[in-house]
Nucleic acid binder design. Structure first.
Lengths: 345, 345
DNA sequence: TTGTAAGCGTTATCAG
DNA sequence: CTGATAACGCTTACAA
């Protein structure tokens, strides 16, 4: 004579489980969620059976309000369709899964105002940590952002920025400058002497660092950067910039174009070809990041490999672990030379 | 003599705001969150000022437990680094942002067991909706998954599957069969007669439908599918399959290889080239989806364009809107012929 | 219109 | 070891 499957509207609650098992709320809570086990085996079994039978899953929201802390990590990226962020997000997701955390994601579309708004919205979730993967730490809206971040940190959340560390928050940095310098050196070694850089607008640290590093490395090895063109971080920005360049004054054979990221470089390659020129022996192109596409296009794209997924994975840990050693083994960057920059004899 | 910025540990609570503004909790709640406005202007201002001053943001968890419903939509994808899912996710995120919802994301890694586990975990968040973008609705683990989904639906959540609709849940479908048939017809029209299909394993509806459609269209127009090779949905699977094919019996010039998705097709193209063969006039390759990379490689990849972002956007709406007309204007698919399948005289 | 108070599903502190 | 019971931050009848 016991209950048929109670077709309760709404999910089974802890209360239901406790009743079904004939124990108190507290006991049920202890076996199902609490960490330190101190429940008689017989009770434990009854509770587990009841939970199973009812298909009980703890209500995370309730848990969060009661515990005062959530199991959420928020991730903010510029554009999730961009492979750069996609790989990064994959690393974050993997780490979160391992740690039993849930990832909520939001897209800034590279709009600083939007970014501020999103941080504020995410703050409402009281996430354990907030990973910022696309922020310009400078510029007019920086103050607003910083305000939100401080508020978040003030309420116990941890902010992690991927890229050049802004202020006091933790950061998972990539040695953009060093990597770009190595790339410059390598390419000068291959015989290139004349380069044009297609970068993002000034004030974006990642871009600035790559420009500086490349200029430095390329220059030190005997090359010189003739021009730095400013645009955005997208494939279309690269395409447009290269098209202009090609039209403006033309580009001499043997010139090297360094795109600030692979995505940009791929746009450049397309523009070069659409202009009837050849990528490689004619106009050389290099990028940064080593996204998957760079391996599949022909010629392959010369670039600096950034272990994007690792980066995301580390960011997740930086966002969740109490202890954090900023200086721990830095991510290894590696110059990868492919067909887009053949040796110039 | 009033409070200096109270450096409260933890976030400002509604209570704090109410006290600061000198109104009741209820009033504060009404102006800050409640929908129907019925608060005197003077009070409203005081509350808003207080909230602003304290940097108050509603605690979404508390709100969710109180309201009994959250502002969350959960998204389950196979692999967020895959551009297919990336674009889809972008559409979901855009729709969610417009609707004031938060997206939480989880990665199945194409592991059915994992998928079940994740759905169960996500259920804990009591999301309004759950979007499944990578599920095999068949196979041995299907029962477990279906059980979780039913449980979710039973507690008032809405399940949306992207792709072939499984059972009673809403689905945002792509006409894989029709699109593949159109592709087959088009390619036969270009003069191809002999094709090999590289597909995912049997039982995966998306793959099966594409294979069936292609075989149908290609056959009806005079071509014939010589072989269907089964592997996975990844670039590497495509690469490996093509490499085998090339080694096994060799592939005659003029043969067409249809990869079940662009990602697979791109792997195939790389394999073809690495084997010293040419993509295009020699061995033709076609894909499905039209991911961005297909436009940037040379030759360009012939494919069927699926408006991925729209698909995600629609899925989001299917997951949140009370009314839902399944048959509403189906997504327009379009065959895009590029250089990877030049006309055969 | 505004305030009081009873929940929402869990956790955690105390007595038993 | 177990069970009341008071929080947690917020919403929402129900009164005033």
């Amino acid at each position: 004579m016991s209950d048929m499957i109670a077709p309760t509207r709404g999910a089974a609650t802890l209360h239901d489980v406790a009743r079904e098992a004939g124990v108190s709320l507290a006991t049920a809570s202890r076996v199902l969620n609490g960490s330190t086990r101190k429940v008689a085996e017989s009770y434990r079994e009854r509770v587990e059976a009841a939970a199973e039978k009812l298909g009980y899953t703890a209500n995370l929201s309730a848990q969060a309000t009661a515990r005062g802390t959530s199991a959420i990590v928020a991730l903010l990226v510029a554009d999730i369709a961009d492979p750069y962020f996609g790989q990064l997000a994959a690393g974050v997701a993997r780490g979160a899964d391992e740690a039993g955390l849930v990832v909520t994601i939001a897209i800034t579309e590279r709009d600083p105002q939007r970014e501020v708004r999103l941080v504020r919205a995410l703050r409402g979730q009281r996430p354990r940590g907030l990973i910022l993967a696309a922020s310009r730490v400078e510029g007019p809206d920086a103050a607003g952002l910083q305000g939100e971040l401080d508020a978040f940190a003030g309420m116990g959340g941890r902010v992690v920025v991927v890229g050049p560390g802004g202020g006091t928050e933790r950061s998972v940095a990539v040695d953009n400058r060093g990597g770009a310098a190595a790339l410059g050196t390598e390419l000068a070694g291959l015989g290139y002497r004349d380069a044009i850089v297609v970068a993002a607008s000034e004030g974006i640290r990642t871009s600035d660092d790559r420009v500086a590093g490349f200029t430095e490395g390329f220059g030190a090895a005997g090359g010189s950067v003739r021009e730095v063109r400013r645009t955005g971080f997208t494939r279309d920005a690269g395409y447009a910039a290269a098209t202009e360049l090609l039209a403006d004054g033309g580009i001499a054979p043997g010139t090297l174009i360094f795109g600030i990221s692979d995505v940009v470089a791929i746009g450049i390659m397309s523009a070069v070809r659409d202009a009837g020129r050849q990528v490689g022996g004619d106009i050389a192109v290099a990028g940064f990041d080593d996204i998957a596409t760079g391996r599949d296009i022909r010629p392959g794209l010369t670039t600096v490999r950034v272990p994007l997924e690792d980066l995301g994975y580390r960011a997740l840990h930086a966002a969740t672990e109490p202890e954090w050693d900023a200086a721990e083994a830095p991510l290894a960057l590696e110059v990868v030379v492919r067909g887009s920059t053949p040796p110039r004899s």
